[in-house]
């Protein structure tokens, strides 16, 4: 089996994951739909990046595209995704198979249906380990138990031969995490890993991810619509709207002073213990239909700061500070207005 280091383009010095101008377009009956439209970001070793957005904002599609999990066609993918310098967009299948699992792994929202119902969990966890290292089933089983213990599944040595339907949703999510960790990947992409779980279990799973990323020097890309999760977990935050990045920056900075009106609206719709007498903000209107994006800024129809200039062109992401960028034409006006109001 090929190692990641042997793949063409491998470069130790390159960033762990560098996504540049990634676009994902789908053919639909109503024309082409840009589910992801020019998204760029980088992930460094051990870092946690949160991608925040409503459903349909392209956050999942962009991550699926990174691992080549969208079938082409119907998806048309352009741009560049480099893992340690290895180009993954339109890469040969063999490269993708090598990188998946051992370089970048991914876990999904609905853990129960994301596990194969007819295979034992131990087998599913150790499957790629056995295939890549040529180990036999017995050592695969041992390795699976080890991994199950690492993700804190009680009584792992007995439960390794159980089937997914015998586990709860939270346990299934742990199994999926164990499975994703089998080849010691450098990045784990988690697509809303806790959305389908009970609140108490959500916290446990999040804590597990956090400790894994700390102890194993594992970079996390966390897709979520929950700003609370982002605030707690992330080093960096990227906010997406209608397939585009609208704001990105270090977590503290973004939460302290959101530039984009969408981020502001999201934050004001979050309950907050310090001002619990205020009414929660709502974002008027509904998420845009991707086939019928409004002219200019996609958020314009719902934006309280919208001005005629917003119709003219689609705002680009522009840098507005150290590792900080946002895509609003009126950033300066908004802040002027806000400060004059105070």
């Amino acid at each position: 089996m090929i190692n990641i280091n042997d793949l063409p383009g491998y470069d130790d010095a390159a960033p762990l994951l560098a996504v540049d101008n990634l676009c994902v377009t789908f053919e639909s009956f109503e024309g082409e739909v840009a589910a992801v439209d020019g998204v760029s970001f980088t992930v460094n070793p051990g870092e946690t990046l949160c991608i925040v957005g409503e459903s349909g904002s392209g956050k999942s599609a962009s991550q699926m595209a990174i691992l080549g999990l969208l079938s082409t066609p119907p998806a048309i993918i352009s741009g560049s995704v480099r893992f340690c310098g290895i180009e993954l967009v339109h890469a040969p299948q063999s490269t993708l198979f090598t990188v998946r699992g051992s370089g970048v792994s991914m876990i999904f929202q609905d853990a129960i249906t994301s596990l194969n119902p007819s295979l034992k969990v131990g087998f599913q966890i150790a499957e790629v380990f056995c295939a890549r290292t040529g180990s036999d089933r017995a050592s695969g089983r041992k390795y699976a138990i080890e991994l199950m213990e690492r993700v804190a599944i009680p009584d792992a040595s007995h439960r390794v031969d159980d089937y997914p339907f015998q586990f709860s949703g939270g346990m299934c999510q742990r199994i999926m995490i164990a499975m994703a960790l089998a080849l010691n990947p450098k990045i784990l992409i988690a697509d809303e890993p806790t959305t389908a779980l009970d609140v108490t279990v959500q916290r446990q799973v999040m804590e597990l991810l956090k400790s894994l990323s700390k102890n194993a020097d594992l970079a996390l890309v966390l897709i979520t619509h929950d700003l609370g999760v982002a605030a707690e977990q992330a080093d960096k935050v990227m906010v997406m709207y209608a397939g585009r990045t609208v704001e990105t920056g270090l977590t503290d900075a973004v939460f302290a002073k959101p530039y984009h009106p969408y981020t502001q609206a999201l934050l004001s719709s979050m309950p907050d213990v310090t001002n619990n007498f205020n009414r929660l903000g709502i974002i008027s209107g509904s998420p845009p239909v991707l086939t019928k994006l409004p002219e200019g800024c996609s958020f314009r129809p719902r934006c309280q700061f919208a001005a005629p200039m917003c119709r003219l062109n689609r705002p680009q992401l522009f840098v507005s500070g150290p590792s900080r960028a946002s895509a609003c034409l009126r950033v300066n006006d908004i802040f002027k207005k806000k400060s004059s109001n105070v």
């Binding site: 691992l67 295939a131 999926m176 089998a182």
Partner: peptide, 17 residues
């Protein structure tokens, strides 16, 4: 078309498998 297929792809299982 079921989700577990994508999981298997994501963990690096070969297509024919």
């Amino acid at each position: 078309a079921k989700p577990y297929i994508i999981t298997a792809q994501a963990k690096g299982v070969q297509n024919h498998r």
